[in-house]
Simulated assay, not measured.
Amino acid sequence: MIHIHFIVNPIAGNGHTPLTKDELQSYFISGVHDLTIKISEYKAHATLLTQESVLEKADIIVACGGDGTINEVATCLIGTNIALGIVPMGSGNGLASNLKIPKNRRKALEIIRNKHKEHIDVGSINGRYFFSNTGVGFDARLIKHYESSEKRTLLGYISACAITFRDIKKNEPLSIGIDGETPMINPFIVLISNSNEMGYKLSLTPKASLQDGKLDVLVIKKINRLKMLWLGILILIRKVHWLKESKSFQTSKLHLTRNHSDFFDTQVDGEHNRIDTNQLDISILEKSLCVLTAK
């Protein structure tokens, strides 16, 4: 018997199409697959539910939601023999898209039933795991505004983007040093990626890979508003390297220091995360997570 546990975020993607056991049962074989559904009710609840499923000896644990739900579930499976399945139900779905897991529910469930396994890299920022990307600067402030919005859609994302542009001069001055280099004053963004998508098919690091043992780092120095608009266009056509203020490199470890402050506002897999320290240690754990993907 194959024990498959589904951890479902009922409000992912605005909760328009809830996942039910009756629906799931039609994709699996009675007597071969034993299905369990657990519903998350609040932030970090998916982590608790996954920890229970690990103790209950589930063979496969499926995250049904967006990148935030996937992060909560996958965090518990690092270094185990339990495979992570994904049913993309969020608005961005960056990691699922990178793994070629379709948003079509039937096709996503077929991938889980077929059980094709691969191992992917995992990022770590001060001991917290990330699977797609993490960052400080504009993207962290953008996610902070996005989370306060009731619109978890592309339109809501664009609206949060506009608010972040408007408020950019109100933010506390930021000085960041990277691995001993001369500190940058108010960098526009420092993005550290494990995958090549941020969600909504957008990418700042299109060459990033989940299986190369490296993190792709994009640093964009302080830029004016006109350059910000130009950057927006370059993101859409995946040509961020055309911006002369940008610098990209790969690494397995990264150290960030913030001067004149004892905290970092960051985003981790599309969720705002305040870290109460002026030091960030970021690293890669090679092929430490087993995931179910299309062949």
Rank of each mutant, 00 (worst) to 15 (best):
S148Y: 13
A160E: 04
C64G: 07
G156H: 05
C64H: 03
A96V: 12
K107Y: 04
R225N: 15
G15K: 09
V62W: 02
E181K: 14
A46D: 00
P183C: 14
L99M: 14
L210E: 01
R258N: 06
K253L: 07
H116S: 01
C290L: 04
E197N: 15
S159W: 07
H255D: 00
M198G: 02
S132L: 12
A46K: 05
Y200T: 03
K169L: 03
A83M: 07
T17R: 11
T182P: 10
M184C: 12
M89C: 13
Y157S: 06
K222S: 15
L95S: 03
D269S: 06
D139Y: 11
K38R: 13
H5G: 10
S30Q: 11
H272I: 12
L231N: 08
C76T: 03
S132Q: 09
D281W: 04
T47G: 02
L155K: 07
S252F: 06
F28G: 04
G66W: 11
S159Q: 15
I60W: 02
N104I: 14
D216V: 04
L231E: 01
T257P: 00
L24M: 13
D262G: 04
A108I: 10
H45W: 02
V62R: 02
L229S: 10
I282L: 01
G79A: 09
P10G: 14
L204H: 06
G123M: 07
G180I: 12
N71S: 09
I4Q: 00
K144H: 12
P102Q: 04
N98H: 13
K239G: 05
A96L: 15
A63L: 05
N194T: 03
D59P: 03
K169V: 10
L285A: 12
K287V: 03
Q250L: 10
K57P: 00
I125F: 06
K107R: 09
I220N: 04
I189E: 10
A74Q: 03
V73Y: 01
E286P: 08
D276A: 14
E172D: 02
G177C: 10
H119F: 04
N196H: 13
Q211L: 04
G90V: 11
P183K: 07
H119C: 01
K244P: 12
D34I: 15
Y42M: 01
E181A: 13
F188V: 10
K144V: 05
I178C: 08
S246D: 03
I168S: 13
L292S: 05
H119V: 01
T47S: 09
D139I: 02
D281N: 15
K38Y: 07
G66L: 10
C161Q: 00
K107V: 03
H33M: 08
G79F: 09
A162D: 02
I120L: 11
L202V: 09
Q51R: 14
S288F: 10
D276M: 15
V122N: 09
G232Q: 08
E245Q: 13
A63S: 11
I192N: 00
W230H: 09
A294V: 11
S195I: 05
A208T: 04
I176K: 08
L243P: 02
A58M: 06
R128G: 02
R141H: 15
I70G: 07
K169D: 06
L35S: 08
K103I: 14
V54N: 00
F6C: 01
L285E: 02
G31I: 13
H16Q: 02
S261E: 10
C64R: 04
D139E: 05
T205N: 13
I60F: 02
T182R: 14
R106I: 08
I4M: 06
G199T: 10
I101F: 09
S175A: 13
